[in-house]
Amino acid sequence: MSASAPDTAAKPRRGFRIDLKTAGPLLALALLVLLGITLNENFLSYSNLTNVLARSSFIGIIAIGATFVITAGGLDLSVGSMAAVIAGVMIMVMNWLIPTMGIGWGVVLAGMLAGILLGGVAGVFNGLMITRGRIEAFIVTLGTMGIFRSLVTFLANGGTLSLNFNVADVYRPVYYDGVLGVPWPIIVFAVVAIAGEIVMRRTAFGRYCAAIGSSEQVARYSSINVDNVRLLTYILQGVLVGVAVLLYVPRLGSASSTTGVLWELEAIAGVIIGGTTLKGGYGRIWGTVVGVVILGLIGNILNLQSLISPYLNGAFQGVIIILAVLLQRERLTS
């Protein structure tokens, strides 16, 4: 009816677009793949596909965390900056440990541990400010986004933090190698996605996230500890940012103030394209995976053809995001 979109959801109408709702992102993905195949025969090549998926896996792992946060009615804008600061600290920790531990997997593992821990701590901070401090998620994470970004610039002294070359050599296989030709980032992405889907669908935590995002009051009256569940989503988000970064660091072996810029928006975009509602209450991990891969493919396809400038990548991504949300609304009012 009018602009009051939430009302329409409760109206006694039948949804005729149920199919489009579930299959929409998959359809878009299939169309993109078809487009890719027609534009360039290299598109389907093994190296191209693994390349796209490996690059998408950082955003993908972060976006899986974001799916939980958004489903529970929250938002985390700080993930891009958080990734940068984690990358910086990981590199510093590893460089710092070389004199004591020598060059080898010990240093790398210590760095990974530090990265995941730092992600968790950052998540605890965001989560506590939001749940105990009763500050809106947008405000808190806008604040920490600035804090983290400036921290990494400060740590790098305005320049670039580089990992010791010898350690980088040890660490490099984590990005470039894999099992049976499948790079590690893709494997980790897949494992996180499957685990995430199970947690979302089959655990009390997943159910509580959807309940809280759907109505915080109803959740409270249903004896759910709203604050703790919310806090957990932010911790999970932080830890997953840590996981993404420990796969990202061996790719370039460096971190600077431009690391992870706009990752938060790409992650949120992937979540939304996948069919999770931005205002919370409904989330699906597999949708997020599809959403992130769609975003990755757009860039890839633009690079593989010569008709349209690849500089328009962002524009195409933007159009896809708006289209996805339009489709979602259509199904609510139909």
Partner: peptide, 9 residues
Amino acid sequence: KGKGLLLNM
């Protein structure tokens, strides 16, 4: 509607 049930579920 406000406190008892999750209307979209």
